[in-house]
Simulated scan of single mutants.
Amino acid sequence: MSTHFTEFLSAAEFMFLCGTQIDLRNAISRAYYSMYHAARLVGERYPDPNHGIGMGEHERLCKRFIHAKGDRKAVAVGYVLQSAKTARRRADYDLGASVTHEEACDVMEDARSFASKLALCSLYDDEDGVVAPTPGSTLS
C-alpha cells in the first residue's frame, strides 16, 4: 500500500494537538518527513553539488536546493528543509532535552507551507504532485 507525503503531515497535526512531550517529538519527526518526501519529488532535478562525496541522502537533498544557482526560492526551500532536519534529529535523538511547544509549532508551520513554497522553485513541474500555491498567496 502506498502513501503520500501529505499523510505524514496529517499524522503530525494529530500528534501536535495531543501536546505531550513524546507527541511533540513525533510531530516534529512526521512534519520533517512530510517535507522530505515532498522535496524528493522536485529535488532530483537539481544538480548534486556533492557528487562523489560521502553523505546521507537527507543532507544531499538539502544541499541540492541550497546550491541551486539562480533559484532563490529553491535555496530558501533547502534551508527550511535543513532546519527541519536538525529539529527532527534533536527530537528523535536528544532525549535529555525537552522539546518545547514553540519548537514544534515552528516546524509545523514550515511543514504546512512547504509544498506551496516548493511549487515556486524554478524546476518544479505540475506533474510532481505537489500542491501549487493558491492564486493571490503572498508566499516568499
Score class of each variant (00 low, 15 high):
1 M>D: 11
1 M>V: 10
2 S>T: 11
2 S>V: 08
4 H>S: 09
5 F>M: 02
5 F>Y: 15
6 T>W: 00
7 E>V: 04
8 F>Q: 03
8 F>T: 02
8 F>S: 03
11 A>V: 10
11 A>I: 07
11 A>R: 12
13 E>V: 13
14 F>H: 13
18 C>E: 15
18 C>Y: 04
19 G>E: 04
21 Q>S: 15
22 I>Q: 15
23 D>I: 00
25 R>F: 02
25 R>W: 01
27 A>E: 06
27 A>L: 06
27 A>W: 02
28 I>R: 02
28 I>Q: 03
30 R>M: 08
32 Y>T: 08
32 Y>L: 05
32 Y>S: 08
33 Y>D: 06
34 S>K: 06
35 M>Y: 02
35 M>W: 01
36 Y>Q: 08
36 Y>M: 05
36 Y>H: 14
37 H>A: 07
37 H>N: 12
39 A>F: 02
39 A>P: 09
40 R>P: 01
40 R>E: 15
43 G>T: 05
43 G>D: 07
44 E>G: 15
45 R>F: 01
46 Y>V: 08
46 Y>D: 12
47 P>E: 11
47 P>F: 00
47 P>M: 01
48 D>A: 12
48 D>Q: 11
49 P>V: 03
51 H>E: 15
51 H>T: 13
51 H>A: 15
52 G>C: 10
52 G>S: 10
54 G>R: 14
54 G>A: 14
56 G>W: 01
57 E>H: 06
58 H>Y: 01
59 E>L: 14
59 E>P: 01
60 R>L: 03
60 R>M: 06
65 F>Y: 14
66 I>G: 07
66 I>K: 15
70 G>K: 05
70 G>R: 05
75 V>I: 12
75 V>R: 11
77 V>F: 02
78 G>F: 01
78 G>D: 04
79 Y>P: 02
81 L>H: 06
82 Q>C: 03
82 Q>H: 12
83 S>A: 15
84 A>V: 04
84 A>D: 05
86 T>A: 14
86 T>D: 12
87 A>W: 00
89 R>E: 14
89 R>L: 10
93 Y>W: 02
94 D>V: 11
94 D>C: 09
94 D>L: 11
95 L>W: 06
95 L>Y: 06
96 G>P: 05
99 V>C: 09
99 V>R: 05
100 T>G: 14
101 H>M: 10
102 E>I: 03
103 E>R: 04
103 E>D: 13
103 E>S: 09
104 A>H: 04
105 C>Q: 15
105 C>R: 14
106 D>C: 08
106 D>M: 07
106 D>N: 14
108 M>F: 01
109 E>S: 11
109 E>H: 07
109 E>N: 12
110 D>T: 01
110 D>R: 09
111 A>G: 10
113 S>G: 13
119 A>E: 05
119 A>L: 05
120 L>P: 03
121 C>Y: 01
125 D>Y: 00
125 D>A: 12
127 E>Q: 11
127 E>N: 11
128 D>G: 09
129 G>D: 07
129 G>C: 09
130 V>Q: 04
131 V>H: 09
133 P>Q: 08
134 T>D: 13
134 T>C: 08
135 P>I: 03
135 P>V: 07
135 P>G: 06
136 G>W: 00
136 G>H: 07
139 L>D: 11
